[in-house]
């Protein structure tokens, strides 16, 4: 698609259509271009998986918070000022010795934006969306994560109304660590379930 034309100004058809929609909707008073810029900036620079990592680190450090997160993730996450825009509910799913959790959206690409930012390309692509449900163990192996055969894998299919956050298991050897230090061990993929928390170096 996006060819570079050095001889001429050219909008590719998608860019032109987006501008057309923006013009039409602005003239109708339905959107404010300044507000659009703020939203872009927010999602490009301010919201990302660091938010979710802080939630996980707090749950690891504070049993009362972990309990709250288990019972009412929407409220527990909102208490840290990470609020969903689409009125979606959150559910935290905790990995245990017996069970590993994996999140997908087979419908489209529903994702917990407020805690993880926008989804990676592979999360939105058809192979992951179709195969995570059919063959989760195989998918995890392709991510370099081989789980013991007796470990159950539970797959959670997100919807527009309900999004999931995986709480990975706290790595051994991190007793007494601060929440900030713990958060560095929590990757985006660990909160989708395609990885584990990092081991302390």
């Amino acid at each position: 698609m996006s060819h570079n034309h050095d001889h001429d100004n050219e909008l590719d058809p998608f860019a032109a259509r987006v501008r057309a929609l923006e013009t039409i909707l602005t003239r109708k008073g339905l959107i404010d271009p300044a507000a659009i810029d703020v939203i872009v900036d927010t999602y490009e620079t301010r919201i990302g998986p660091r938010n979710g990592a802080k939630v996980v680190a707090k749950a690891w450090s504070d049993p009362a918070y972990a309990d709250w997160l288990r019972r009412d993730a929407t409220a527990a996450i909102e208490s840290l000022s990470y609020t969903g825009r689409q009125g979606e509910h959150m559910q935290a799913v905790f990995n245990t010795e017996d069970t590993h959790n994996l999140v997908v959206c087979t419908l489209c690409s529903c994702y917990p934006w407020s805690v993880l930012g926008l989804p990676p390309v592979w999360y939105k692509a058809p192979p992951y969306r179709s195969r995570a449900v059919i063959d989760p163990r195989g998918v995890l192996e392709e991510f370099g994560l081989t789980l013991p055969a007796d470990k159950k894998i539970r797959v959670w299919d997100s919807t527009a109304e309900l999004r999931y956050l995986v709480v990975p298991m706290r790595p051994d050897g991190t007793e007494g660590w601060s929440e900030e230090r713990l958060a560095d061990l929590v990757s985006r993929d660990a909160m989708i379930g395609t990885a584990l928390a990092r081991q302390p170096a």
Binding site: F14, V18, L25, V40, Y43, E44
Partner: peptide, 8 residues
């Protein structure tokens, strides 16, 4: 344009 479509 992808960011704009998203934000709209």
């Amino acid at each position: 344009w992808q960011a704009e479509a998203f934000a709209m």
